[in-house]
Every structure is written in C-alpha cells, then in structure tokens.
Design a protein around this nucleic acid. Structure first.
Lengths: 359, 359
DNA sequence: CTCCGGGACTAGAACGTTCTAGCGACGCGA
DNA sequence: TCGCGTCGCTAGAACGTTCTAGTCCCGGAG
C-alpha cells in the first residue's frame, strides 16, 4: 500500500520502473514527467498514476547531468548573519519562479569562503551569488573566470570582470538617517561605524557628507565599531565616558544598535529621551516591540530579486553569444565587465528617535 | 595561462580531457583523482599536473550518479534560528571526517518543511537530519519509510520507526537551573515556557519536578511564553504587573531570556539585584559581554556528532543487511525502531544570577 | 489511390563519472 | 622452465535521466 513497500532490493524507483508499469517507453515517461507536449491524454494519465503508485521521485542529479543546463544557483551565506538569512529567503522566492533551484553553502568560523565556493562549483552551479563575500577581489576574479558571480552587499572598486554587484545605496541610507535626526533638531550626531565590514566605508562616507551638507561637519564624530552587538556595546561605553555626549547615534547596523541600546539602558540613559539611536538593515530584530528601533531599511526582496536577475542575465547572455566571434585578446574573455545595481534604502521611523532634550 | 582560458567551447573540463592530456585512460585518471591505489607514482604526478593545468574539477553530480552511495546528508534547518546555525556548523565538522557532504535546505516562513524535505530527497540524500522539525509524526514516518531520518531536538513519543532522535536532556537542564537558583537562596522561581516549541514540554516538566523536590511546588509558576524575544518580553510584562514578583526566572531559551532582560531593564528592575534570570542554549547571544547570561548549555558539538553518528549507523546497518533474508511481514521492513540519544546539558553560570535581595 | 503532414510513441545515444573485468609484463618460488 | 600473484593500466558497461532521430499510423489533400 505505502509507496515505499515496493521493491525488495529497497532501491528507489526509477523512470524505467514507471515506464514498465505504465507499459510505455522510458522516453515517453520522461516526457510526461516533465510536462512537455508529445504524449496523449490517456497515456499521460496512466504514467502519472504509475508514478504515484510506486512513489517515483525524479533524480535531480541524473537530470542535471544529462541536460547541459543545471538550473542551479549557488548561494554562499554566513551562518551567523541574520541579515543573510533574510536574503536567502528572498533568493528562494526569486529563483523559484524563474525555474532555478538554490544550492546553499554556509560560511562559518570553521568553514571558510574558499571551501564554501569549492563545494558550489563541484555541484555544477551555473552562477554563484555570494552574500557579503570577504575574500580579496583577486580571488573573486578567479572564480568569475569559471562562472558568473554576483556579489551582494559587497562593493568592488575597481569593478571585477564577471562579477556583478548588487547592493543598497549605503551612503544614501546614512544620509537619510542624518537628515531625519537633524530635522528633529539634533546637531551632535555620532556614527559608530562597521570597521571593515561590507558597506561600512560607504555608510561612513555618507554620514560625513550629510553632516557637512548641514554645516555640522565639525560636530560630527566617527567611532570605530563593527557589525556585532559587542562592537556596538563597546562603542557605546566609549561614548558614555566621553566629555560630551552626542544627542543622537547612527549605528552601523541593527545588531550594533542593539548593543548600544543595551548599554545606554543599563547606564540609565533614556532612549530617545536623552539620546536618539538609529540602526541599519530593518532586520527582524529592529521590529521587535520592545526594541522598536528606527532604522534604515534595505529592500531585501529587491536585493534578492536583482541578484538573481543579474545572474540570469549573465547566463542568458552567455547562451546567446555562443560560438564567440570576437577573438578576445586579454584574459576574462567570456566575462563582461562587472555591473553594479544600487538599490535605494528607505528610513523606517520607529520609537528610538525623537527631538533632543535641550531642543 | 589561467586555468579557464582552455577550451574554445567554454565547456568545463572533464575527466576525459585530463586523461587525454596526460596520455592515459579515463579510468586511470579517475583512480588518480580519487586517490585510490592502482596507479604508478610517475603517472599519478602526470595526471595531477594535467588536471591542474586545465583547471579540472570533478563533477559531484556525475560522481554521485554512478556510485550507488551518494555520501550526502540532507539537513533541514530554520533560517531564523541562531541555534540551528550553530548546529549546522557542528554538522559540517562531524560529517566531513566521515567522508560525507552536507546538502542544506532552509525552512522559512515562505518555505515550508514539506518543500524543504522534497528538495533533499530529490537530491538523493542518503539520510536526513532535521533540526527541530515541526511536522506531525505521521509525516516523519512517511519520510522515514524512504530514507533514514534523525530528528534533532524534537522528541517523539511514541517512537517512530526509522526516525532516531538526538536531543538534550531538557528536563535535566531545567533541573540544574532550578537547583542553582535554589542553592543561591531563591524560593520564588518562575518559568516562562516555550509553548509548543520542541523541548518545551520537557523543560516545563523538569522545572515542575525540580521545584517539587525542593518542596517549592506551591510557589512555582509557569507563564506561557515561546521561543522568541517577543515571547519573553510579553511574559516579562505579565510578571511586572503581577501582585507578587518572583525573585528568579527560568526562560525557555536565550532569545526568550533576552526579551525578559530587556523589559526588566526598562522597568528599572535590576538583574541580578532584584531578579535573577536564566536562559537555555548557551547561544552566542548569551555570551555577549553586556548580556552575560547564566544559561543551560546544550552540547552542540556532541549533538551534531551524535546526529551524524545515528545517520551513519542506519546507513551502514542497511548496507550490512543487504539481501534481506528476513521475510519481514509488516510495513517499514528495513527501518528499525527509532532510537533516542539524550545528551547531558551543563549549567553555565554568568552574571545574571545571584542571591535574592531579601534572602 | 497516392502522398504528405503530423501526432503518438520508441530506440538508442549522450552526459561525466565509477566499477568490473581483464590484459600484459614482471618477479619469484618450485 | 613453468606457473602464479601482483602491479599498472585499459576497455567497456553501468548509473538515471534527457535529447535526437526516427517509426508507425491515420486522416485529408491532390
């Protein structure tokens, strides 16, 4: 009765089994399973029925092996990055309607990016989507020579051939945050930066130019920070000990901002009463009722959608060019120059910002 | 020069290309690439050199297709679960030395467990490791009829044939936490539970029996909670409004505890001065300096190791039985009864617990 | 009646590996 | 000298699909 109680050998059923049971050829069974046209209605029904009865399940690997296209997108992501988790979810949503599958490869302290990428390449992924890659650009170029690569959130300058970049306009996001704070009346706005994290340089720069534009360049302050709660907490402690405290803080991201909030809370510094705090990412964290963080939202569905889109564009471009009439001289012949897609962020105002006390 | 600038067709190099370049047969090239014995030292060198020169990379799918063993373990995990992220890292570490690869399939709001498992099965995984699965036991049984399944952190009673369980002794962990608090002098210890989350029932029970054993059964209190910060925060608000506040709180997990800490902090309830708080998991979160949470640690490397171990045991057991002399009558013939591996937790004392004020 | 088009279906060759035979040569004990 | 095992190697058949090139049959146009 149960689908599994079929073969004595315990072998998983194959297309040949289905075909035999339905009394057709393997090729026709394949046609039916794929939903292609070329089979009669009655036969179709019969094959489908047979497949269901013996619990047939197509073998993805054999399928991919035969067809030159694997329709597989490799995704490298950081296990400990909540933001990456959100992006991966978006990628699933974007890839599926295009008929592509995702192959996930995690990066963790004990599992470097090199290893993660090797695994994806061995799996015959047609393109790679790397979330916030940290490896040197030269390494990315090497990989891109073999397969199209999309770098999400990590900017590359100069551009690398074969590597497209999809990122949020980090500078613009920082500007929006500063504008919001200044509009509330703040003049002493500090920035806790992200160190060497992807996007940190742009946010830092965006903060600086925004402050200058408001004529507050000399009151600006950048504190060394980082992407984790710990980094935010450390920077917050520095602020508490400083001679003059800012009335508002723009943190590198939400995790960093959370660390800041926690330290302020412990020090009885009221938020937003004494100090306003702004994060970056609009992660699930910031939406929690008790955190209720004002933050710069990254458009995760669009980031994911564009990442998949860039990858597909490369793939179909490759397919179209084909024979290659151009006798390209230099290296990276097949890979076009890296393009950059920049997506606008939007400020999400919540409960951690208000007019300064001294107004 | 560069590995990729080889074939004009842009096709990725195959074993046949390597063999041709090295002037040997495909079979021998295969032998060398696998590192099996059966090739001379000089030839080995030559083949390896050829492979390096043309940038050969074995095709994992073709390899798996041919050998009946896929040496692939499917892992289903929750994208938004930090605890799962830690487990996955442990699984990588455990699977690699055993010569197994991991295939990751994420569960997210928009991607159910059913879908995640289908993908893994289509990938020909030899066994499935499910992290905190939420699907009904009947569904697990269906899957287990096709392939060995290990459920991590989710207990199954009665046991399901073909599904092994690897979990922490949740009840024991709760006991340790209560013992610790009582030893510090607490008598009013409340528990914010995990609702229907995996492990929640055991922790609840463990808390109750521990309280009873200390003769504090009537002073115990269980508040409905859940696995997220939000759940912890909500329960904490309830506690603040209550007529009598406990002097200590055992939260379902670290995320939940974090929500509690945050609400207490805002309400100027000092931790551990006024109230002690204990979490569960010993996640990265709890280790952050500014959180510094006392928590019940789950032994993640061992959980991961045992999960892989159980899966391999099933696989090798299957391989050993082979022909199947036993004329098994009932269903689930190949699948033995589900075994349970329970791993001891250990209390990690940090800064959120102390003797009660009035003590 | 013949011929052609097309729909339903099939045989067999890919795809890139691994595995099973087996082949020749060489060394060694009888 | 003759077996005989071992080493280095090769040819060819799997594995489970998809794709290419048909074959067969039927109906309608010429």
């Amino acid at each position: 009765m149960s689908p599994s109680s079929s073969g004595p050998g315990g072998k998983r059923p194959t297309l040949a089994d289905v075909a035999e049971r339905a009394g057709v050829s393997v090729a026709l069974a394949s046609i039916v399973m794929r939903g292609t046209k070329g089979a009669g209605a009655a036969t179709r029904e019969r094959v489908l029925g047979a497949a269901r009865e013996i619990g047939y399940r197509p073998d993805a690997r054999a399928r991919l092996l035969r067809s030159s296209r694997s329709r597989l997108l490799g995704v490298q992501f950081g296990l400990q990055e909540p933001f990456h988790a959100d992006l991966v979810e978006g990628l699933y949503a974007a890839a599926e309607p295009a008929g592509y599958q995702l192959a996930l490869s995690a990066v963790a302290p004990s599992r470097g990016e090199q290893l993660a990428v090797e695994a994806l390449l061995a799996d015959r992924c047609e393109a790679l989507i790397l979330l916030g890659p940290r490896v040197p650009a030269a390494r990315l170029a090497e990989v891109a020579a073999q397969v199209p690569v999309v770098s999400v959130a990590r900017r590359l300058r100069p551009p690398v051939a074969g590597v497209d970049v999809v990122r949020t306009a980090d500078g613009e996001g920082a500007r929006q945050a500063v504008d919001h704070l200044v509009a509330l009346g703040h003049r002493d706005v500090a920035h806790i930066d992200g160190g060497r994290a992807p996007g940190a340089a742009d946010r830092r720069r965006g903060y600086r130019t925004a402050m200058n534009r408001h004529g507050l360049g000399d009151r600006g302050r950048v504190l060394p920070g980082g992407p984790t709660e710990e980094d935010g907490a450390a920077a917050a402690r520095v602020l508490l000990d400083a001679d003059t405290r800012p009335t508002a803080v723009l943190a590198f991201n939400d995790r960093c901002a959370t660390g800041v909030l926690d330290i302020f809370l412990r020090a009885r510094v009221s938020v937003p009463g004494d100090v306003s705090v702004v994060g970056f990412d609009d992660s699930r964290l910031s939406r929690l009722a008790h955190i209720d963080l004002t933050t710069v939202g990254q458009d995760i569905p669009r980031l994911a959608g564009e990442a998949v889109g860039r990858a597909l564009a490369r793939l179909e471009g490759d397919a179209a060019s084909g024979g290659g009439a151009s006798e390209g001289a230099g290296p990276g012949e097949g890979a076009g120059p890296g393009e950059e897609t920049v997506i606008a962020p939007h400020l999400v105002v919540r409960g951690t910002t208000a007019a300064p006390a001294g107004g």
